[in-house]
Each structure stands twice: as structure tokens, then as C-alpha cells.
């Protein structure tokens, strides 16, 4: 009896062991951690990618919302999981990078995360009210009193971007933070409560004359190449380094994931980002897909850490 049991256990161990050594993923769900509540930008992109990723990988993908502590609770959960490829997560970058640089303890180190891919990228633009006299950054910076800009939290990526870029340009501003969402921050510009705001171009688009309601006027894009015809870029005004400010949807996993597992997920995500379902959704929802593989993503993360380290003082939230 005992023997039979032992053989049985050995057989099971052999089978599972063999399967683990064989092709990843075997019959196991992949948990995709979203560090924010359902309905937001991070949640939406994961849920859009999930079905296409399932198809590409041949296994079930389960999105799981673990929100809290500004996105670090979800990051911690991924960090603690086994590095077997069955738990991955999406990260708020550069939000977490900035937190780390400014010395906030997030319960895990970004440098230890196994970076897998970058799904989307949002580039920033500077907008003023359509009926405003301000037509350029120069106008904005020479209006007599410091220009007022609107943002959500002071630790939000847009707010950090605003403080650092105007700091680099040597222009004195007041960043009015505390608006409940980026839409509210843009409406503060429309209502004339503040002068301008820096927001992702894809969010600003719906308020521009060319592509939306015509309430806002784009006066600068934080890009090296022209993305909106006729609107100057930061390269045009002599600050190409400001094009580094982007908002990314980065995918990573627990520290020390095997290279073949990373490659499998990377390929799955790439196939998903090229699928019809995802591309047509991105078109409609104004999401700019910008797929990057594991190596490229890891390099970008290093690059960002160095970049924000340099502007650490400007990045820190004001007292």
C-alpha cells in the first residue's frame, strides 16, 4: 500500500516536473495584476489585451485588481509572487520611478522587477484656452506674473513633468494641483481658472479645434518630431531633452524570471498588440500603442531612473 502511494507520488512529481520543464505555459492561469481599481486607464488596457493574449498564449489570463498606496500595493503583490510566469503586472511608469527617486518607500525596488514589455506610450502637450492671447511658451512665460498650470496630484506624472520642464526652461510657474482628474484639470483651463496645462496629447485632442470641441489650443508638444501639424515641438524651442517625458504602460514580473518564460510572454503581448481587436480599440479610444520588447523596456527603465535622478529636486513635491 505504502509502496503504491510512493510510486503514485513519484509519478505525479515526474509528470508535473516534466511539464514544467516542457513548454510554458502549461495548463495554468496567468494572473495579470492591475494596481488600480476597475474602470481606469490601466484596467482598461489590460482587459483589452487579455483576450488577445489568451489566444496567443493558449491559456487563460485573469486580470486581478489589487489597488492601493498609489499603485505600489499591486507592485508588491507581483514582487512576492513566484517567478514562474504565472503572475505578471502592469506598472505606472514613470510615476513609480519618480516615487523611488524622491525617496518614497514602495515596498519593492523597480530595479529588481523583470521587465517584459511596454504596451503603450502617451506623449505630452502644452495647451491653453482657445480664446487666450497666449500663443507660445514665450507668451506664457513673459505674461508678467508666474503662469498658472493645473494638475491632479503633485506626485502625478503630469505634475512632475510640468515642474521639471518649466524648471529646465527657466520659466517661473505656479502648479495648481488637486484637480480630481485630468479632465477636470483641462476644464480649469477652459473656464479660465488657470492659464495652461500639460497633459497627454491623446487626452488633449478631444478639446482641440482640429480634432474635437475647439475649447483648447495646443502650443507645444513634448516630442522631438512634429506630431500635430503646425504645433512646435520641444526640439524647435531648443530643449529636445524634454521629449523624454512620456507616460508608459509597462509590463513586468517578479525578480528573476527565466529568459524563455519572459520571451514567451513578450511574444504573446506583441501578437496581442498587433491583433485587430486591440488596434481598433486603441484607434477609437485614442490610445497610442507603442510596443517595446523586454530588452528595450529594461533599457528604457534604466534610462528613466538616471534621468529623474538628475532632476530629483524638481521632481519632489513642494511643501
Amino acid at each position: 500500500m505504502k509502496n503504491i502511494l510512493a510510486t503514485g507520488i513519484a509519478a505525479v512529481a515526474l509528470v508535473t516536473g516534466g511539464a514544467a520543464m516542457a513548454e510554458y505555459p502549461v495548463d495554468n492561469n496567468i494572473t495579470f495584476v492591475i494596481p488600480y481599481s476597475p474602470g481606469g486607464g490601466f484596467d482598461t488596457i489590460v482587459r483589452q489585451f487579455a483576450p488577445a493574449l489568451e489566444e496567443a498564449m493558449g491559456t487563460t489570463v485573469v486580470p486581478e485588481n489589487i489597488s492601493g498606496a498609489g499603485g505600489s500595493r499591486g507592485g508588491q503583490a507581483v514582487h512576492r509572487a513566484d517567478a514562474d510566469g504565472y503572475t505578471i503586472g502592469i506598472y505606472n511608469i514613470p510615476g513609480l520611478t519618480v516615487n523611488e527617486v524622491t525617496g518614497r518607500d514602495q515596498g519593492f525596488a523597480l530595479s529588481e522587477v523583470t521587465w517584459i514589455a511596454n504596451l503603450a506610450v502617451a506623449r505630452y502637450g502644452l495647451a491653453v484656452a482657445a480664446n487666450s492671447d497666449i500663443n507660445s511658451v514665450e507668451d506664457l512665460c513673459s505674461k508678467g506674473s508666474p503662469a498658472k498650470l493645473s494638475d491632479t496630484g503633485a506626485t502625478s506624472t503630469a505634475s512632475v513633468t510640468t515642474r521639471i520642464s518649466f524648471g529646465i526652461m527657466g520659466c517661473d510657474i505656479v502648479d495648481v494641483t488637486g484637480y480630481s482628474g485630468s479632465n477636470d484639470a483641462m476644464i480649469a483651463v477652459i473656464s479660465g481658472e488657470v492659464d495652461a496645462t500639460i497633459k497627454p496629447v491623446s487626452s488633449l485632442k478631444k478639446y482641440l479645434r482640429e480634432s474635437g470641441s475647439g475649447d483648447l489650443k495646443l502650443i507645444l508638444t513634448l516630442t522631438e518630431d512634429e506630431v500635430v501639424p503646425g504645433v512646435p515641438t520641444v526640439a524647435d524651442i531648443g530643449h529636445p531633452e524634454l521629449a523624454k517625458f512620456t507616460l508608459n504602460r509597462v509590463i513586468g514580473g517578479p525578480p528573476g524570471m527565466p529568459a524563455d518564460v519572459v520571451a514567451a510572454i513578450e511574444n504573446g503581448l506583441r501578437a496581442a498588440s498587433e491583433s485587430d481587436a486591440v488596434t481598433s480599440w486603441a484607434d477609437g479610444a485614442g490610445v497610442e500603442l507603442g510596443f517595446m520588447g523586454a530588452t528595450e523596456t529594461a533599457a528604457m527603465m534604466d534610462d528613466l531612473a538616471t534621468f529623474y535622478q538628475e532632476y530629483k529636486d524638481l521632481a519632489a513635491a513642494p511643501e
Binding site: T44, Q48, K206, Y207, G212, S213, D283, G284
Partner: peptide, 8 residues
């Protein structure tokens, strides 16, 4: 989620 971007 249905690919509609809410805006003005």
C-alpha cells in the same frame, strides 16, 4: 472598454 473615448 468599448472603444469609445468620452469627451466634450
Amino acid at each position: 472598454l468599448h472603444g469609445i473615448e468620452p469627451g466634450p
